[in-house]
Design a protein around this nucleic acid. Structure first.
Lengths: 199, 199
DNA sequence: AGGGCATGTCAACGATTGTTGGCAAACAGA
DNA sequence: TCTGTTTGCCAACAATCGTTGACATGCCCT
């Protein structure tokens, strides 16, 4: 069995390998290219050039381009726990602030959004993240379990819409909004989508 | 001067040409391909095959791929006039309903959103549309002219976010929402973004 | 010290892409 | 009817893509 065929990109999780530095450089370059260029225009050759290695190394370590994308875009939204009545009535503000922190410090989110729009596998990955990470949070806040998926979808539409206009399309007036303004405007929206009674 | 070098795709606007049928087939096929595949994966060869003509015809009539995209994606949101106090206090509902009609009957909008995310020219086109079509509507509804760009950006974030999750990413719970549900949830949001006093 | 495996480079492959120029046929105006 | 233009197809181009296999170098274990 060839130990090096594993695709785990990080040292510390599993047996450390001599090539971990190279693997790290590859996924780092891949993240950047996928974020700025999207899936199709982010070429393996350009990623390899950024990582200062040969393109064939990418193939050896990650199999193919899809494998590289899967390894480079591993997303954990680190959503805070929303149990407790005090947090529940502040859920809108907390979630909006958390999302802003995430998007401004994590280029992987931009990469996933860019790829998800033009790539089927990317779109499915986004669906997974919403189902496994966003939906549980909605479940903690929303009263009626049956309405949770719809409310989570509404929340996602507003939060992803903000990310789309501000970080991907880079629409000037959306970029001009201050953090405080965004929180002040969007927090009540999210709060209402999660907790308001059926309109 | 070669009359056929014009890129006007439709008969009726300008001198009719013998090749107008072909031109129409090309832009129709282009719209569909750009909508489903995005810019990079929509190949000129595939578009030409759909239109039952030779790829070189696309080049002759539209110069290059960018020219074809520009000719295929001409967007008029046909936003209703929002003057009048009665319409102004119903702006949220009217706009949400109008956007749903547009997105469900016009594949060009999906095409532009898909392309705008991965293509610089597409993103700039979206900015133009927002500035020239969405901003004036916000101006009719919003009291303070200085706040119009920010309010239009907020409205765009929610409306584009809905289109993103529902028509592009096709997230199941977002697709499961009925038209009535969407209007009921989003109309107050848009109304507030446009008319509420500074939060 | 030596055998085996991991790491890395190099060159090339087949496929596909946007794009171009030449040539045949159909049409339009005289 | 004749001439020039428009329409269309065909073949090919240069570039680039993801991907592969051969080969050299270095590290690790016994």
């Amino acid at each position: 069995m060839n130990r090096s065929e594993s695709t785990s990109p990080f040292p510390g999780s599993g047996t450390p390998r001599r090539s971990d530095a190279t693997r790290g450089a590859i996924v780092a370059a891949a993240r950047e290219r996928f974020a700025t260029d999207g899936y199709e225009r982010a070429t393996i050759r350009a990623i390899a050039r950024d990582a200062n290695i040969d393109p064939s190394m990418v193939m050896r370590y990650y199999g193919n381009k899809e494998g590289l994308f899967a390894a480079a875009v591993a997303i954990d939204l680190r959503l805070p726990d929303m149990s407790g009545a005090d947090r529940r009535q502040d859920a809108g503000r907390i979630l909006v602030e958390h999302f802003l922190d995430m998007w401004e410090n994590n280029e992987v989110l931009t990469a996933l959004l860019r790829v998800g729009v033009t790539n089927q596998a990317g779109a499915e990955r986004m669906q997974d993240i919403l189902r496994e990470q966003l939906l549980p949070v909605a479940q903690q806040v929303c009263p009626d379990p049956e309405q949770v998926p719809a409310r989570a979808a509404l929340m996602a539409s507003q939060l992803l819409g903000l990310a789309l206009t501000r970080y991907v399309l880079r629409i000037p007036p959306a970029m001009g909004l201050t953090r405080a303004q965004i929180v002040a405007w969007l927090a009540p929206t999210i709060q209402r989508y999660l907790t308001a009674s059926n309109p």
